[in-house]
């Protein structure tokens, strides 16, 4: 008698089957193959000569890889923190019932409609000391003005952060604004009755209520940190030297131009393991919280 239920379950599974096969072959299959390649001596063409962990030894004594990883951490922390802070402040500013709010929103969100390649090129020109901001200010009469961060290995990462924040702050603003609009009017009324200054309400009452918005924006920003590639390519080509190299670029360069599949896949595998190491405890914690919620 259970047959109607069984058949509906069976049809559900059969409907999912193609997606499952794609997942198994494309994602899991490719991931496993990538991991295997990283243990071989493959150069331009894949081969199956097992060399153990030698590629990882080379990888972790490679200055460019170490620099790439440091750069990603440095960029990631600054980019996420500044984008969140700036996006939140923009949202608060727009939330003050400013005139022509729609236009402001569009203006701030506009950079996000551009790709990282375009963003990178625009900022490369702006930051170029002989073409951009430095030249403009000098031409206005400030002969000693210097803004050549992009030309120096020590400061070039800040340039990437500037361009990244310019690109992403609008998105954060949109998410935060949606969150702010969801705050109950009564809370504001209550705060006014208590005579709290507006900034205090934002800082102590509203911000904690925006936890979900911060989490959403944070996750979105973090994914763009991990796959950071085009910004570095378009803006600095990883330079000066190797100062703005990032892991994804390391993988791409070694996969193709350098014809070093095994080192590229070792780098890709290391990235995957790092991401899993960060995400897995978080997922575990989430399931624990969810389980407790159900109990």
């Amino acid at each position: 008698m259970a047959s109607p239920r069984m058949s509906s379950r069976a049809s559900a599974y059969s409907a999912l089957l193609p997606a499952f096969i794609v997942l198994a072959v494309v994602y899991i299959g490719s991931t496993v193959w990538t991991m295997w390649m990283s243990l071989t001596g493959s150069r331009m063409l894949p081969n199956n000569n097992f060399v153990g962990l030698r590629n990882y030894e080379i990888l972790f004594s490679n200055d460019r890889w170490i620099t790439s990883v440091h750069n990603l951490a440095f960029f990631g922390v600054l980019f996420v923190a500044i984008s969140l802070a700036l996006g939140f402040l923009l949202a608060v500013a727009i939330d003050q019932k400013v005139r022509s709010e729609d236009s402001w929103r569009s203006v701030y969100l506009y950079p996000y409609s551009m790709s990282f390649v375009v963003t990178g090129l625009v900022w490369q020109w702006l930051l170029n000391p002989t073409l951009g901001i430095q030249k403009l200010v000098r031409d206005m009469g400030f002969e000693t003005f210097t803004f050549d961060w992009i030309a120096h290995a020590e400061t070039v990462l800040y340039c990437l952060v500037i361009a990244g924040v310019w690109h992403a702050a609008g998105l954060v603003m949109a998410i935060m604004l949606a969150g702010l609009r969801g705050v109950d009017e009564d809370i504001w009324k209550a705060a006014r009755v208590d005579g709290l200054p507006t900034w205090r309400v934002y800082a102590s009452v509203v911000t904690p209520m925006l936890g979900a918005s911060f989490a959403t924006a944070g996750v979105l920003l973090s994914t763009s940190v991990v796959r950071l590639y085009d910004l570095s390519v378009a803006m600095t080509r990883g330079g000066p030297g190797i100062a703005s190299e990032v892991p994804a670029k390391f993988v791409m360069d070694h996969l193709f131009e350098r014809a070093n599949i095994s080192l590229a896949t070792a780098a890709a595998t290391s990235m995957l393991i790092t991401v899993i190491a960060v995400v897995a405890p978080y997922m575990y914690w989430r399931t624990r919280v969810a389980a407790r919620g159900r109990a």
């Binding site: 490369q124 170029n128 050549d148 030309a151 803006m235 600095t236």
Partner: peptide, 8 residues
């Protein structure tokens, strides 16, 4: 070289 060289 000049400072503009790095992104030229």
């Amino acid at each position: 070289t000049d400072p503009g060289a790095s992104s030229r």
